[in-house]
Simulated scan of single mutants.
Amino acid sequence: MRQIVLDTETTGLEVSQGHRIIEIGCIELIGRRPSGRTFHHYCNPGRAIDAGAVAVHGITAEFLADKPTFAELVEEWLAFVEGAELLIHNAAFDVAFLDAELALAGARYGRVADHAEVVDTLALARARYPGQKNSLDALCKRLGVDNSHREFHGALLDAQLLAEVYLAMTAGQAALALALDETPAAAATVLAAAAPLKRPRVLRADAAECAAHEARLDALDKAAKGGSVWRRLAGG
């Protein structure tokens, strides 16, 4: 399976207010492994960038002044994502901006859904971890993905983190899918490796802990009529 992990940065939060994409980052996975192919570009939006957005991603209008427009990159981007499964965190946001950029580039480019299937990794995370925080940062912490180098949001950096998060979050599902495609004997091996049985570890009290326990029971015997419940039940 060919998958593309995708993220964008924008001039602001509302596409309906004419905000534009200023950075797009994509990482290709083949059979759930990074292929080494990426697509990463900054785009000149031809408009101002909200101060709040700059505070998040650190990208300024001055930096983008000599960058190509999205329309100049659209053919290259479509060739990269064509026929793939797009993995996007909070996909509705990015897809709305991408659809708007495609429309501005020309009606012949259609919509994202005309070129690739979209999977929302935020929806996957909410189903797997209901009632918990499922931002990219929260998932990195929960799944042990190192994001200590993430000072600002960045499309390619966030795509790299999302790829690691997605692979960690769906590792068991991948093992199950592999098992279903194998012979019964091989399937049993894969499933056993994916979900090993763990024997409970029994910890026994040492002499000091036993002595402390008995001292506590002695104190309870003195305080309660008929002695402590523990010793009565134990027949002590």
Rank of each mutant, 00 (worst) to 15 (best):
Q173P: 01
E151D: 10
L167C: 06
A159T: 00
E151Y: 00
G154L: 01
T170E: 09
M169G: 01
Q160E: 15
M169A: 09
A168C: 12
A168E: 06
A177I: 11
N147E: 12
S135R: 02
L136V: 13
A163R: 13
H153F: 00
A138P: 10
F152A: 04
H153E: 02
L176F: 08
Q173M: 12
G172E: 13
D137Q: 14
T170I: 08
G172N: 13
D158G: 01
G154M: 04
R142K: 07
K133N: 13
N147H: 14
Q173C: 09
S148I: 10
A175F: 09
L156Q: 02
N147D: 15
L156K: 06
A155L: 04
A171K: 14
A155C: 08
V165I: 06
Q160D: 15
C140W: 14
L139G: 08
L176A: 07
A155G: 05
A174C: 05
H149V: 12
D146F: 10
A168H: 14
E151R: 02
K133C: 05
L156F: 06
L161M: 03
A175Q: 02
C140H: 06
V165P: 03
K133M: 11
S148M: 06
A174W: 09
Q173A: 12
A177G: 05
A168W: 15
L157F: 07
L156A: 09
L136E: 09
G154P: 04
L162A: 07
S148W: 00
Y166A: 03
A175M: 10
A159H: 05
F152S: 08
Q160W: 15
Q173I: 14
C140Y: 04
Q160K: 14
V165T: 02
D146K: 08
D137P: 13
S148T: 05
L162I: 03
A168T: 13
A175N: 02
L161T: 03
Y166S: 05
